[in-house]
Nucleic acid binder design. Structure first.
Length: 628
RNA sequence: GCCCAUGUAGCUCAGUCGGUAGAGCGCGUCCUUGGUAAGGACGAGGUCGGCGGUUCAAAUCCGCUCGUGGGCUCCA
């Protein structure tokens, strides 16, 4: 279910895009929803109810919990309202009249605030249908009967004005379409999408497991998933070698002092695993009767030290840079690491492999001279683009994440920010893709370019990222010796083409629905002997495949060929080799290929081997997506 | 963290009004030896997420707790 942000923040916004016919249906359905809720529960306070990308919702403040039974009753009432064929009627009013109407309806709690959002001088209107009227800029269908196909989908909590400090309301989500067929198609599509959900596919194909006893959001990569990850890592590593990166390794923990210097502690304390403090220190504090908050203070002040599970790799790479004197001739220095980091994400935010508490970034930090900035950003962007094109992921969005000028969460001076933002904007323009600038999406230390993709249910996830940072070099007092024999401050680029291996693989599983290209497939070839006597011949074939480093196996089950084929299909094996007496007599193998149906047929093993070698080395994408 | 939903065999799920559990797939053994998506028989597997309560009796009702799903908030 693509429960997205609405195209407009509020139904009361007066500056409103013209609604499409479908949006009108959905917006009207939201009003009918409110009509029905007020009929059943007249004490309910209404907030807002806009259309969204895939439906509509309305936020209610009600003492009654909207359980499934209640929602069903509401849906039934909505059908009645639609059947009554009420006319939608626009009423333009003055501000005073609007206040009067809101009070008359007893909807002061939220609607008066929403009214205040409408700037002075803008038109104020209500839309009336039957006994119900709602502050609303429109637009709507003419009669409720025009809402021919709708369905309430779920109830969710939501904060008034999206602020967790405010009261939590009950949001009812629904969707509506012009026809019943379209609605059914939409619901079928949602059902279909579940099948390629990485959590299901990951289980079916034995890719990963998240174990309750290990901990929330901590991914166990199973053998098959590990193969995919390893292939991706070696793919990116070989690209990094070409581009002059150096591989480093750093530990999973580091002293708190390191993160005090970087600014991550205590600023991000809430999203870190708690610090590790030496037991002697802890027992001494316990004897002193130190309270929890005192301990927390001492940690913040640096009166006691401890270790932190690494929440990010940058400070460690920075210390590597700083461990030697650097000359301008050495720059850029590009330090790369598959660095595992740990973050205490809120439990409600965890999600399969896409939002976890321990993850491995394909991280690198570039230490550069300012004049190298443009070239280096371009290089990083090129790498991200390469990753997407090799994997056939063309459905992504590029976001230039800038600081919110109103907010104070950012560090560093405005001048540096301007330079960094300018460099990124310049670079993205040469990328040759559409992009959007978004205020307030920047990291606290610098702006970034993010590559964002959607999962099967329409949620967006940030994958690749390129970030420019003038701030951490400052905090760690980094320098290099310039040609003028003076010290200069380097600029840093943080970048991760995959983002994290966990999230990337999660999204990739859904992208391919488990039908991986042969170079990534955990098992590339399966040999299916016709009967038990031929297993020995199959072993010979297997030995040849293994000698070529293919990942292959033999299906030794004594079942019918059809069953073995079915198993290989559901296991999503790219290539099957069927081995019967006929093939052995002729010195051939019979090929049945999921990834390349052109290869189907009978031919000598050598021929098969060379075409697979070619397929793997060129990272060919599956030609046809199988339906199972 | 918050709201709603949910947790039964390795997996997907059924289990009525409270009377201590079922199916399919998978797994094991045996039979079957086959030609491009499921051959057959038998069998093993569950103190129904955990703890507590109500009751003669709890998978079922209540409370707490842990996990999961969808939203919201958050995401260096």
């Amino acid at each position: 279910m693509a429960l997205q942000e609405p195209p407009c923040e509020s139904s009361t916004l007066s500056i409103m895009k013209e609604m499409t016919p479908l949006e009108e249906i959905r917006h009207s359905a939201a009003h009918v929803l409110a009509t029905a809720v007020l009929r059943l529960y007249p004490d309910t306070q209404l907030d807002i109810g806009p259309p969204t990308d895939s439906g509509f919702y309305y936020d209610f403040d009600s003492e009654i919990p909207f359980t499934p039974e209640v929602v069903e009753a509401i849906e039934t009432e909505m059908k009645k309202v639609i059947k009554e064929n009420q006319r939608f009627e626009k009423i333009e009013v003055s501000r005073e009249e609007a206040i009067g109407m809101i009070k008359e309806m007893g909807q002061e709690t939220y609607k008066l605030g929403r009214l205040e959002d409408i700037p002075e001088g803008e038109a104020i209107s209500f839309y009336r249908n039957g006994e119900f009227a709602d502050l609303c800029a429109g637009t709507h269908v003419s009669y409720t009967k025009k809402i021919k196909a709708f369905k309430l989908l779920q109830v969710a909590g939501s904060y008034h004005r999206g602020d967790a400090e405010n009261k939590q309301l009950q949001r009812i989500y629904g969707t509506a379409f012009a026809t019943k067929d379209e609605l059914k198609e939409h619901l079928d599509r949602l059902e279909e999408a579940k099948k390629r959900d990485h959590r299901n596919v990951g289980k079916d194909l034995g890719l990963f497991h998240i174990d309750e006893m290990v901990g929330q959001g901590l991914v166990l990569w199973k053998p098959n998933g590990a193969v995919i990850r390893q292939e991706l890592e070696s793919f990116i590593s070989s690209e990094l070698n070409k581009q002059g990166y150096s591989q480093v390794f750093t530990p999973h923990v580091g002293k708190l002092e390191l993160y005090r210097t970087s600014g991550h502690f205590p600023y991000y304390q809430d999203s870190q695993y708690p610090p590790i403090i030496h037991r002697d220190c802890l027992s001494a504090l316990a004897e002193e009767g130190c309270t929890c908050s005192e301990l927390s203070n001492k940690l913040e002040e640096g009166e006691i030290d401890g270790y932190l599970l690494k929440p990010m790799n940058c400070p460690m790479h920075i210390r590597i840079f700083k461990s030697e004197q650097r000359s301008y001739r050495d720059l850029p220095i590009r330090l790369a690491e598959f660095g595992t980091v740990y973050r205490w994400e809120q439990s409600g935010e965890l999600n399969g492999m896409t939002r976890v508490r321990g993850f491995t970034q394909d991280d690198a930090h570039l230490f550069i001279r300012e004049e190298q900035l443009q070239d280096e950003i371009q290089g990083c962007l090129g790498l991200v683009k390469l990753v997407f094109s090799v994997l056939g992921m063309d459905d992504y969005r590029v976001r230039v994440s800038l600081r919110d000028p109103e907010s104070d969460k950012y560090v560093g001076d405005a001048e540096a920010w301007d330079k960094a933002e300018k460099a990124l904007k310049e670079a993205v323009q040469t990328l040759g893709v559409d992009y959007e600038e978004e205020l307030g999406e920047a990291a606290f230390y610098g702006p970034k370019i993010d590559f964002v993709v959607k999962d099967v249910i329409g949620r967006e996830w940030q994958l690749g990222t390129v970030q420019v940072d003038y701030n951490l070099p400052e905090r760690f007092d980094l320098s290099y010796v310039g040609s003028d024999n003076q010290d200069h401050r380097p600029v840093m680029i943080h970048r991760a083409p995959f983002g994290s291996m966990e999230r990337f693989c999660g999204v990739l599983i859904e992208h391919f629905a488990g039908n991986f290209p042969t170079w990534l497939a955990p098992e590339q070839i399966r040999i299916l002997p016709m009967n038990d006597e031929l297993v020995e011949n199959a072993q010979e074939v297997l030995a040849q495949l293994k000698s070529k480093n293919f990942r292959a196996s033999i299906d030794k089950q004594s079942g019918k060929l059809g069953a073995k084929i079915r198993k290989a299909e559901t296991d999503k094996i790219p290539h099957m080799l069927i081995l019967g007496q006929r093939e052995i007599d002729e010195g051939n193998v019979s090929i049945r290929s999921r990834n390349n149906p052109d290869m189907d047929g009978t031919r000598p093993l050598d021929e098969f081997i060379s075409s697979i070698e070619e397929e793997i080395s060129s990272k060919t994408l599956p030609k046809e997506r199988a339906n199972t």
